[in-house]
């Protein structure tokens, strides 16, 4: 079933990605008293990109906690809190700041359950923003989700639509594992139909077919989902394109991707992270391992060309992957 067909069976409302995330947080705060938010300016300011909005007014300072600007301190504290019986939801304002707390993430959050022989839970959710496109330059525009998807002991999701944003956040908060939610900041204003059902969740490791097609599979994440759907629409009639949003990067839904490539024989992977050693390589490898003989053309990668995100608009537009890049990749193989 396509994601759209699934949505058509549920009562929905139209929300932006930003609103969908906020509603997911609101519902989970209402549902479970052990859940609370913490991060820089998530409270009184409502989040620097306005995602947490009015939650502070509704839930108060104990449950929507403004922290010092100290990612290592509050990521360490969230890890200790998760191991002792609460369910913190941490916001790292920009994913570039993950660098400040990678010790806690990689050596504590990721490893405690395993090192302790499975005798602790680690129900921590980390939300962070990624992506270029607003002239925020190299330290506020990074896309680092491949680090987390690569690192054992962590789960990583990266929504491309408002519905999946809501469903994934809720699943992340309910999970007893550490789940990192990578929100592309350029799609916060993108609208979509979102189920109003408070029990609507998106399971980890379940991709969605956002558009069915016959000729080329585009596996696209985050902002590239919308860009790819636009290209598919433009090329309709000439090339029939199937757009698959993995939604969850680790675990990754190999079956849905492989089924699609077995049908189309052609694959483009569109993800904003740097192209080398990352998401593109992982998707490509799983297809090579499972659908090698179905491939009719070389796999194409669309991503950031191994540069940082530059400041000046013409430079940023040069390296930022977009619809044009997806279209060029399709035209090379279709």
């Amino acid at each position: 079933m396509t994601a759209q067909a699934d949505l058509e069976q549920r009562p929905t409302e139209e929300l932006t990605v930003r609103e969908a995330i906020r509603e997911a947080l609101r519902e989970e705060l209402e549902r479970d008293e052990d859940v609370y938010l913490m991060g820089e300016d998530v409270g009184v300011m409502g989040g620097v990109l306005e995602v947490t909005g009015d939650l502070y007014e509704q839930f108060g300072e104990e449950r929507v906690r403004d922290t010092p600007i100290a990612e290592a301190g509050f990521m360490g504290a969230a890890t200790g809190a998760a191991a002792t019986g609460t369910r913190p939801v941490v916001e790292i304002m920009f994913s570039d700041f993950m660098g400040v707390c990678m010790e806690q993430v990689m050596n504590q959050t990721a490893k405690m359950r395993y090192m302790f022989g499975g005798k602790t839970e680690m129900p921590v959710t980390v939300r962070t923003t990624e992506g270029g496109g607003m002239g925020a330059a190299s330290q506020h525009s990074g896309t680092v989700h491949a680090w987390i998807a690569h690192f054992p002991g962590l789960k990583a999701v990266a929504p491309g639509t408002a519905a999946s944003a809501k469903g994934l956040i809720k699943t992340a908060i309910r999970s007893d594992d550490p789940v990192f939610v990578f929100e592309n900041k350029m799609i916060y204003e993108q609208s979509g139909d979102v189920p109003t059902d408070e029990d609507f969740t998106v399971p980890l490791g379940e991709a969605s077919v956002e558009r069915e097609g016959e000729d080329v599979t585009v596996v696209a994440t985050q902002r590239m989902v919308g860009e790819s759907l636009g290209v598919a629409e433009e090329l309709a009639g000439d090339v029939s394109i199937e757009v698959v949003d993995p939604r969850s990067l680790y675990p990754l839904d190999t079956d849905t991707i492989v089924d699609s490539v077995e049908k189309t024989g052609r694959l483009v992977v569109a993800d904003e992270s740097p192209v080398s050693y990352g998401v593109h390589a992982e998707v490509a490898t799983r297809v090579m391992e499972n659908a090698f003989y179905s491939l009719d053309a070389p796999i194409q990668r669309v991503g950031t060309p191994d540069t940082h995100m530059p400041f000046s608009t013409p430079l940023e537009q040069e390296v930022l992957p977009d619809a044009e890049g997806v279209r060029a990749a399709i035209e090379r193989i279709a």
């Binding site: 609370y36 104990e62 290592a72 301190g73 990521m75 360490g76 504290a77 969230a78 890890t79 200790g80 809190a81 998760a82 191991a83 002792t84 019986g85 609460t86 913190p88 010790e103 806690q104 050596n107 504590q108």
Partner: peptide
Amino acid sequence: AGPGLATGAALTLDY
């Protein structure tokens, strides 16, 4: 690394 974890445990107690 310990002080961060203990602060987290204390946060759970306080919360």
